[in-house]
């Protein structure tokens, strides 16, 4: 096992609902080498967002441990080594594009010359050069999402977390954003965990697709995606891809029937 591995060991999470303990996540274990792209997929309520929040150090496991390169998420927080992007961008509406991308450095409390040029570089990379002074309210949904991704990557995180980053976009826009995200990621393959509802998005972007099942949340199966990088969008129309997609969907429906 090399340093930089993502290791989730027997992680459970219980919530207290009206005095009753509700098991949201039941001893989940997962390992991945540094620089891999993991997609979490499953029905709502399967605990994938809970898992993501725990990876971000925003929530603590009731049992079990999470280590990224041997460090806890809280330690990564203190080092500014995490990045996150949410479904509807969650930008600060009073800050310009530039100030939103710079935001992590404001919270961390220091910004070197290199960081400063990295802010500009990230804005260019996500294709928003020229919009530095625009406010989020003046941007389209896709552009806002680009700002959110730039913000998540600007501090060169050791772990990137994406919570349905393109969930609010239409299918066509989502695909082209997927392609851009892959390009960005290939430039500097950071360990990434993405929660998604879209099977083809998961296949297109991820090295491993983790299919989760609900009540309580467990990992149903981990599927390795065999396709070479850089993947073209046309991959989604190939027979192999269709086959894989059908397999994943079947897994999800099987579990749903178990429920019923």
């Amino acid at each position: 096992m090399t340093v930089g591995d993502l290791r989730i060991e027997d992680v459970s999470r219980r919530f207290d609902v009206d005095g009753r303990a509700l098991l949201a996540l039941d001893s989940v274990s997962l390992e991945a080498p540094a620089g891999s792209f993991i997609a979490l997929i499953g029905p709502s309520g399967c605990g994938k967002s809970t898992l993501l929040r725990m990876l971000a150090g925003l929530d603590q496991p009731s049992e079990g441990t999470i280590r990224i390169g041997g460090l806890s998420p809280r330690t990564l927080q203190q080092r500014g080594a995490l990045g996150i992007a949410f479904q509807d961008a969650s930008l600060l509406p009073w800050r310009s594009v530039e100030a939103n991308v710079r935001f992590p450095f404001d919270v961390i409390g220091r910004m070197s010359e290199a960081d400063r040029s990295r802010v500009q570089e990230m804005i260019e990379l996500v294709g928003l050069g020229g919009f530095e002074q625009a406010l989020p309210g003046q941007l389209s949904g896709g552009m806002r999402q680009r700002v959110a991704i730039a913000r998540a990557l600007v501090s060169e995180p050791q772990l990137l977390l994406l919570d349905e980053p393109f969930g609010a976009l239409d299918q066509i826009l989502r695909r082209s954003m997927n392609r851009e995200l892959q390009k960005l990621w290939l430039k500097r393959p950071v360990t990434t965990v993405m929660v998604t509802h879209s099977v083809d998005e998961a296949i297109f972007l991820a090295d491993k697709v983790v299919v989760m099942t609900g009540r309580p949340g467990r990992i149903g199966r981990v599927i390795d995606v065999p396709f070479e990088r850089e993947r073209p969008l046309s991959l989604l129309n190939s027979a192999e891809c269709r086959q894989l997609e059908a397999e994943i969907l079947q897994l999800m429906f099987d579990h749903e029937n178990d429920d019923a």
């Binding site: 925003l58 927080q77 995490l82 969650s90 600060l92 992590p104 919270v107 501090s155």
Partner: peptide
């Protein structure tokens, strides 16, 4: 989630 972002960077 705006507050989550702050916490994520150790704030």
């Amino acid at each position: 989630r705006l507050l989550d972002v702050v916490r994520l960077y150790g704030g």
